[in-house]
Design a protein around this nucleic acid. Structure first.
Length: 524
DNA sequence: TCTGGGGTCCTTAACCGT
DNA sequence: TCTGACGGTTAAGGACCC
């Protein structure tokens, strides 16, 4: 081990919920839950205010509502989170070329690759500067762990939460880990923890004591020995910048179980279509089609079929999925269906045929025209090498408009806001923006022609327009105190819920964007 | 009214070919 | 020709992660 911590782990605090609070002034300092809001949804992220009530991620939303009925329950806005995540990742790239994103809100940075920190104090300074830059750029807080390995850096950031930094000095790992619960180690979930508990192993120290042989006996070769190594604070996994996806899948859980066989089949076709869309937009193709079925009793099974070659052809994948669902008994009801593709390649079967064709054409004159026509006609199953370049028609939803809680809307007269709730033919909208004071609530018929879905407002420092349209500036002015719906507190806990936009940057009249360290002010 | 969605990796078993 | 070892591929399931 070296003298300086070489790995930095960044973990944004309650990321989705914090973004929502940053963009919705009326939610700052209040419990916010982001996740599935349907009858079978689960919590993706709970704000710290909601966690006080016992709400945590992966909990059924229905249970969260029982624990914390007054929280705001919002559907995620992934496009917005991704935009903010990209900006944060860009910041990380200024520290080192070696950045490994784990998700939208987490990443490892190899500081050594950049020679960014030669000693512990320098590493700490880098980490603190990063946290400051993130706050300036996004208004959000992130926690940082610094250590000699990925595992320890991650444990560090976990300890640092929220809004902190923890540096684990090289040489102190063993004592630090010893008393910790086995769940601290990556790869130990509920099942493994229970397994270990039955053997009398509760702490990381006890894993070391048990010895490698015993762990391998308990958990198998790969899992057992890697756990034994990690328990000693040893972890030489490198930071890996880019990893190719190995599978693409989509799945849907239905609000009520599906019993109708025809409906099941049509859902499978629809999922295959979405899967192919994703596959194509990633420029990939796949060879093995996987169908996933979760039944009424939550039992889950998968069926798969491997084709002769990789494809991104909708008809081929739909047919394979249709064959697979044929082999599954679904009486009793289906709770979830999924369609996925693995064995990914960057080329498609069509490409191979095209390559073969051009090679042949180059070598000898072939009656290529005729063959091409024949192939295109004979679009039969398997891997029909049909070069169907055109995008599949997307089924246009023609049903009644659905207003999703948390999502952005614009009203012809009142400007932009977000859906607070809807039901019984009405939709409630709160009109406010990241830089405004908490806004007021208005209710409209769900089919109000003046109301339309809108893009999320700009949150990042460099995105903020120099001049907002006049109507919106007026709107914020109109939002006076007392109008704040539930008639409750002003954003009180200013500590953890720093507004995305620093108050000084907001004024009723348009003003240039606040200049911010690290932000490029040269945006249009 | 428990239990999402998108992934990764590992294990086991069956099967095939050498 | 039979048997066994072994490796690779496929299929299915399970655990885990965010």
């Amino acid at each position: 081990m070296r003298a300086a911590p070489t790995i930095l782990h960044l973990d944004m605090d309650a990321f989705y919920a914090s973004v929502e609070q940053a963009s919705k002034p009326s939610l700052r300092g209040k419990p916010v839950v982001v996740g599935g809001i349907g009858p079978r949804g689960v919590v993706a992220t709970a704000s710290y205010e909601a966690r006080v009530f016992g709400v945590h991620s992966a909990m059924a939303t229905a249970q969260a509502r029982r624990l914390c009925p007054n929280a705001a329950y919002l559907a995620p806005r992934f496009a917005l989170y991704r935009r903010i995540s990209d900006a944060v990742m860009e910041l990380l790239h200024t520290l080192s070329p070696l950045v490994e994103p784990l998700s939208l809100d987490e990443a490892f940075v190899d500081l050594e690759a950049a020679g960014a920190a030669d000693c512990a104090e320098e590493a700490r300074a880098v980490g603190e500067q990063l946290r400051q830059d993130i706050r300036s750029l996004t208004g959000l807080t992130g926690s940082v762990g610094l250590a000699g390995s990925k595992m320890l850096a991650k444990i560090g950031s976990e300890q640092a939460k929220p809004d902190g930094l923890v540096l684990i000095e090289p040489g102190t790992e063993r004592e630090l880990l010893e008393p910790m619960t086995v769940r601290t180690l990556p790869g130990v979930g509920p099942a493994t923890a229970e397994h270990l508990r039955r053997t009398g192993i509760h702490t990381i120290g006890e894993i070391v004591e048990a010895g490698e042989d015993e762990l391998v006996r308990l958990l198998g070769k790969a899992h057992g020995s890697s756990l034994h190594v990690m328990a000693q604070g040893l972890d030489d996994r490198p930071v890996v910048a880019e990893r190719d996806a190995k599978s693409v899948s989509v799945e849907d859980t239905f609000d009520v179980d599906l019993h109708d066989r025809a409906r099941v089949q049509s859902e499978v076709r629809r999922l295959a279509e979405r899967c192919v869309q994703r596959l194509r937009s990633a420029g990939r193709s796949g060879r093995t089609v996987v169908l996933k079925v979760r039944r009424y009793d939550f039992s889950t099974l998968t069926r798969s079929e491997t084709l002769r070659g990789p494809t991104d052809d909708l008809a081929v994948i739909q047919e394979a999925a249709a064959r697979l669902i044929e082999s599954v008994e679904t009486t009793g009801g289906v709770r979830l269906l999924g369609v996925g593709v693995t064995g990914l390649a960057d080329f498609t079967q069509e490409d191979l045929f095209a390559q073969a064709a051009t090679a042949e054409a180059a070598g000898a004159a072939v009656a290529e025209e005729a063959e091409g026509a024949e192939v295109a006609q004979g679009a039969e199953p398997e891997h029909a090498p049909v070069a169907s370049g055109e995008p599949e028609p997307v089924a246009a939803e023609a049903g009644p408009r659905r207003w999703v809680p948390g999502h952005d809307v614009r009203h012809a007269a009142f400007g932009t806001g977000w859906v607070q709730g809807s039901g019984v033919g009405r939709v409630t909208v709160r009109f406010e923006q990241p830089w405004s004071a908490p806004g007021r609530v208005r209710t409209f018929p769900v089919d109000d022609p003046d109301l339309e879905p809108a893009e999320p407002p700009p949150l990042l420092a460099q995105e903020r327009p120099g001049a907002e349209p006049a109507s919106e500036a007026e709107e914020t002015e109109e939002a006076d105190p007392g109008a704040a719906g539930e008639g409750d507190a002003q954003p009180s806990s200013a500590r953890s819920s720093s507004p995305a936009i620093r108050p000084k940057s907001w004024s009723p009249s348009p003003s240039p964007p606040a200049s911010v360290p690290g932000a490029d002010a040269s945006s249009p």
